[in-house]
Structure formats: C-alpha cells, structure tokens
C-alpha cells in the first residue's frame, strides 16, 4: 500500500468537504453542542441538589458513551459524500483509471472521514472534560477526567466505531445514488449504540471499563468482517458495472 497515494486521495476529499458547508458544519456543530450541552446537564442536575457520587459517575460514563455515538454518526456524513459524491459527480472512473490500487483509494477515503471526525471528537471531549471537572470537583473532591474509562472511549471504542461506520458506508454507497439517502441509511449504525445506552439506563449493563472493553472487542471483530466485505464491494469492476 502506497500511503502517499492514499494521503493524496484523503487530502483531496478533505478539500472538497471543507467547501461543502453543510457537511463541514455537521462535523463541527454536533460535537460543539455536546461539549457544552452535556456539562450544562451536569450543572442543572447539581443545581437541583446533591446527587450520590455513584449516580453522578454513572451519568458521566453514560455521557462519555454519547461521544462514541456522535463520532460514528458524524463520520457518516463525510464518508457518504466521499463515495456517493464521487458517484454523483461521475468522478470515480477517472480516479479508478489511475495507477492507485482499490485499497489505496478506499483507505484514503476512510482517512478523509476518520481524521475530521476524530479531531472534532477529541476537541469536544477535551472541552467537555474541562467543564465537567470544574462543575464536579466540589462534589467529588477530585478531577474525574481524564480517567481510564474516557481514555478507552477515546482511543479504542471511538476509532473502532468510526472505522465500522465508514466500512458500512462503503456497502451502503454501492446501492444508493444520493448523499442524503446514504447518510440516512448509514445512520442505522447508531442503533446498536443506542441499544447499549438503553440497556445501561435500565440497569442491565453498566458502562464501565469491562463493558467498554467488550464493546471494543465486538467492534474490532465487526471492523475486520466489514473490511473484507467492503474490499469486495469496492472493486473497479464492481463499481463500474454493478454499482447503481
């Protein structure tokens, strides 16, 4: 794999995405809202009276998980545009006529969706952690963030979720012809995460280190399986003769 070629594809996609304001802002606005909105909820909860430390910690861990959902959904907008956008502009054929391999093109497109999403997520989580620490220090007596749980969320669960989201989107992109439909179908990606959140809320699971490790293992397995499936889908002949 020639990483320089993959990077060329990624930077080209990033240049286009920067010009597509709706996609660009979608990647920035949702994380920004969460980085301020979630600490605001903590503030409201604390204003209503002291809550037990265990419940507060459970709430904060649940909030950490929101960033996984956010990241997986944010990347869909970019990855949908990255592939379906090329289909709409009919620019895939000249791209496929270059010496780049299918894997290099696919990897470049994955990077284009991954980089802005992960950067936006890390920036918003940093703001969230600072604000939350300020708000909860008085009650907990220590800075809750950073901790191992959020580190797991940021450096393991979130990247794996974004990768899965991108791979799923390659499969979706092969079947649809407009970016909006691809984004809507890609949003299916959020369902398993919402289910996990609901299971945590009704007390069937707890969002602790063990759970996040288990989620990571499942995501990794799904990433590997979908990698092979998306590689099969993203082939020159498939794209030119079978993609709708």
């Amino acid at each position: 794999m020639d990483l320089e070629i993959a990077w060329t594809v990624a930077t080209k996609d990033l240049s286009i995405i920067r010009k597509k304001k709706s996609i660009f802002y979608a990647v920035i606005i949702l994380p920004l809202i969460m980085s301020i909105g979630l600490p605001a909820i903590v503030w409201v909860v604390e204003q209503r009276g002291t809550i037990p430390d265990a419940i507060l910690i459970g709430l904060l861990n649940a909030f950490s998980f929101f960033f996984v959902i956010m990241a997986s959904l944010s990347s869909i907008g970019i990855s949908s545009y990255s592939i379906v956008g090329e289909k709409v502009e009919k620019s895939l054929e000249p791209l496929l006529a270059t010496p780049a391999t299918d894997g290099e093109i696919l990897f470049g497109k994955g990077l284009a969706a991954f980089i802005p999403t992960i950067v936006a997520t890390y920036v918003s989580v940093t703001i969230f952690m600072i604000l939350t620490d300020i708000l909860t220090y008085a009650q907990l007596g220590y800075s809750y963030y950073p901790n191992l749980t959020i580190a797991l969320v940021l450096f393991l669960v979130t990247p794996l979720a974004i990768i899965l989201s991108n791979e799923l989107n390659v499969l979706v992109s092969a079947r649809v012809n407009d970016v909006r439909t691809a984004s809507q179908l890609g949003a299916i990606m959020g369902i398993p995460f919402f289910v996990i959140y609901i299971l945590a809320e009704i007390g069937l699971i707890s969002l602790d280190i063990a759970t996040f490790l288990a989620i990571s293992a499942i995501l990794l397995a799904a990433d590997i399986a979908l990698f092979y499936l998306s590689r099969t889908t993203f082939r020159r002949e498939q794209i030119l003769t079978r993609w709708k």
Partner: peptide, 22 residues
Amino acid sequence: NVGLYDALSAYKNLDFYGRMYK
C-alpha cells in the same frame, strides 16, 4: 462523463491527478 471535481479549482483538479500519477 468528464468526472471533474466541481468544488475544486481547475488547478487543484490537475494537481490532484498529477499527484495520483506521482
């Protein structure tokens, strides 16, 4: 279908392909 990138400039379109061909 020419398949150019409408959002990019003429220069950047050619530059991208120049890079792809190294």
